[in-house]
Write a protein that binds this DNA or RNA. Structure first.
Lengths: 225, 225
DNA sequence: GCACGCAAGTTTGCATACAAATTTCATTTC
DNA sequence: GAAATGAAATTTGTATGCAAACTTGCGTGC
């Protein structure tokens, strides 16, 4: 949830941001116990903000309670598959809403980003990552539903562990622009169901690729319909 | 998130549960500032667990930061509409998964609950509430995706404020069983898309009723397709 | 009569204190 | 040598302390 207010800076928010990043990038390994005092000293704060940020992380599902204290949550391949399905549900619906009621300028923005991406030189990895993110963001924005956007954002943090962090940034890039083109076409035609279907298929293919790249066991039943 | 572990009891969890309930039921009014010391004294704990539970509530989106401290979040009718759409996305997808890959016993359970509900005497309000909840739970369970279930659960807490709490328990009941029957039929036929469509329509009708009952201004654009 | 300013009172954000529970680890026992 | 024991060291969960930031309300000046 990107705050729209000039939020008062609070240490626990900073600590949360740092820990979140370290967990999602895998710097803090799954099942690693989180020692409050270590973190506090590392970040030069007292235990209070650390504990408060751990509460948030727990609610976010990134850390799990132990008998005492907390540990970085480990996700199984199956849980990652489950999460992919959540994304298919949410982002698919966002695409459908974008098609059905995105404003002309919303849709122009989507098209523009897509086309910029088509003209990218294949070597420009960073730019491909950025435009991919922009593409998905633009669709969420066009959905006209900030809470939906929020939910998608929240569901997007569960791909760490193992080599996942690296892959999920790279993943979708390798798929080429064919998927995106299908989505754009459906949105331009204001065809909600088609946009939804295309987006779901896109996410599904992304994860199929993901299993291949990571070498993790592919959970059963990824396929649908 | 109903914890499945024998979680060590922690005061902050208790405080969280109490505050959450009081917010969702409207006992704590929207925009009401939450004074740490008041809460602490009311619940006979120190400020520490109170602060920690506020962090969780903030992450859950039930309280918002003020320049100093927190206040109960107020939801506008439009935000409630947005949230209904999130539910349509998630629960619709859950229904589709239930149809496509629910086990025979999963489906038998759904049918059983539905039929029990059909035979209810109309006076038995409490039982209608319970079986309605059971019905939706059974479908989520049949989806075979706990994370999806979790996401739905999280999205289900945004209907408080105003007279909403009362209504959202009552709402779906008044709709009769026609909607449920459609959903059950689709699931029995293993027709994913039909189940998804029926569930979305059900939630949509629920909210249409909701606007009528509460007298709140209906936000634009609830309708789709 | 209204606005402004200033002091007193709240209430927070962060740090620290402390006892209880758990873990660690060396020592003893078989 | 392995298992058992228990004392020491960690580490947590909760409470409290404290200075700073914000509010409130009164008094003063215009």
């Amino acid at each position: 949830m990107p705050p729209d207010d000039p939020l008062p800076s609070r240490l626990s928010s900073d600590v949360y941001a740092v820990l979140r990043r370290q967990i999602v990038t895998g710097e803090l390994r799954p099942n690693q116990p989180l020692i409050e005092l270590d973190i506090a000293e590392r970040l030069q704060v007292s235990r209070t903000p650390v504990r408060e940020s751990l509460q948030r992380l727990a609610h976010a599902g990134l850390v799990v309670p132990r008998k005492r204290g907390w540990a970085v949550r480990e996700f199984t391949p199956d849980e990652i598959r489950q999460n992919a399905e959540v994304r298919m549900a949410l982002e698919g619906y966002a695409a459908s809403l974008a098609a059905l009621r995105g404003s002309p300028s919303d849709i122009a923005a989507i098209v523009a980003i897509h086309e910029r991406r088509l003209n990218l030189r294949s070597s420009d990895e960073a730019m491909r990552v950025k435009t991919n993110r922009d593409f998905h963001d633009a669709i969420m924005r066009a959905s006209g539903n900030p809470r939906l956007t929020d939910a998608i954002y929240h569901s997007g943090q569960f791909y760490f562990n193992a080599p996942i962090a690296r892959v999920t940034t790279g993943e979708e890039l390798a798929l080429g622009n064919a998927d995106h083109a299908l989505i754009v076409a459906a949105i331009k035609k204001r065809d909600g169901p088609a946009a939804e279907k295309a987006m779901r298929a896109h996410i599904q293919r992304t994860f199929a690729l993901f299993w291949r790249v990571t070498g993790l066991a592919e959970p059963l039943d990824v396929r649908q319909e």
